[in-house]
Write a protein that binds this DNA or RNA. Sequence first.
DNA 1: TGAATTACGTTATGTTATAACATTGCACAA
DNA 2: TTGTGCAATGTTATAACATAACGTAATTCA
Lengths: 180, 180
Amino acid sequence: MSKRIETLIAQADKNCTARGTRLTAKRKQVLAGLLNCKRALSAYELVDYCEQEFGETFSAMSVYRILEFLEQEQLAHRLNLANKYVACSHICEHHSHDAPQFLICQSCHKVSEIIIPPNTVSALKQTVADAGFELKSPQIEMNCICNDCKTKALGRDHRNKQHSVAHSQSTTAMTTQAGT
Amino acid sequence: MSKRIETLIAQADKNCTARGTRLTAKRKQVLAGLLNCKRALSAYELVDYCEQEFGETFSAMSVYRILEFLEQEQLAHRLNLANKYVACSHICEHHSHDAPQFLICQSCHKVSEIIIPPNTVSALKQTVADAGFELKSPQIEMNCICNDCKTKALGRDHRNKQHSVAHSQSTTAMTTQAGT
DNA sequence: TGAATTACGTTATGTTATAACATTGCACAA
DNA sequence: TTGTGCAATGTTATAACATAACGTAATTCA
Ligand SMILES: [Zn+2]
Ligand SMILES: [Zn+2]
Ligand SMILES: [Zn+2]
Ligand SMILES: [Zn+2]
């Protein structure tokens, strides 16, 4: 495991201790799996991935429980659009971000955790409020095509009109926290 | 079935004919089921619902295929956040909307198909482009709490602090079409 | 130490979605 | 009219994602 990931795990461990929770060995391994793998993984993919990488065996059930824990601790996020999970890319930062925002490449599953300008977010909230709904701390997820894949797709298009990315239909998702 | 729904089905039928596709009896029934039921339904819920309402039996498989057809025809939409389906609320309007936008109540599954101001959408697109992704014709889905449910939840909160909506974690989803 | 709590293991089951292949019904040409 | 093709639907199986229920082990703390 890379030095960088070890540092992140150590930081995550500190965060948990500070919050009175425990980042156990299993939980560290799952988090390491997520950090190690660049793209988003489903719970079942994570089972396989951890088995390969660490020779550890996890039941899918355990992975789900651990992912739930990591989410609570803001160490990982569930991508509702993809039914997959990613490590938080802000483990070392202090602020507890309450509105993580993700771009998910539909082609290669690369995920980018971004910051949407607050005024865009508040414009969205206002529109939603006008419609009689409440949208708070939105976790926004957007199905996209990353530039890499777009370039590849363009190459293909030249050879083979009509196909490739042109057919893909994707979705942007915003998870919001209501209440409190 | 209500007069209003019959009118919508007739309009949908016309649209299909104009496009050279066929809104068969089965397809009409599934669409009627979606129109009849106010909230979003999963494919399996739709199987049950149609059975109850129309005494027709559908295999889940057929329903999935029919939903796929209705989506192509823009007569229904798949809500990627909820893994559920709704009838399009613009069947009678002429413009083929390429950016449907939905608010989904996490509590009662009520769905509202709204219009987000174009400048908000383009601000989002710009942010996404800056991050090296492409977001086109976004179908935005937002998990929300509707005002009705919020009111109810507040009532509960008074009696029972901490619980209810406060725990729900939801997501906004944006489906986008890339290419072309 | 012993009770309470937390984490983890295990098995079963529920839910959503697709694959693969068979059958039906209709349009149209021979 | 019969055959052929094609779209729609039926049927069965299975993949993929997720949770329920219950038991055991480890940890915490009085
Ligand atoms: Zn994060
Ligand atoms: Zn990509
Ligand atoms: Zn619509
Ligand atoms: Zn509601």
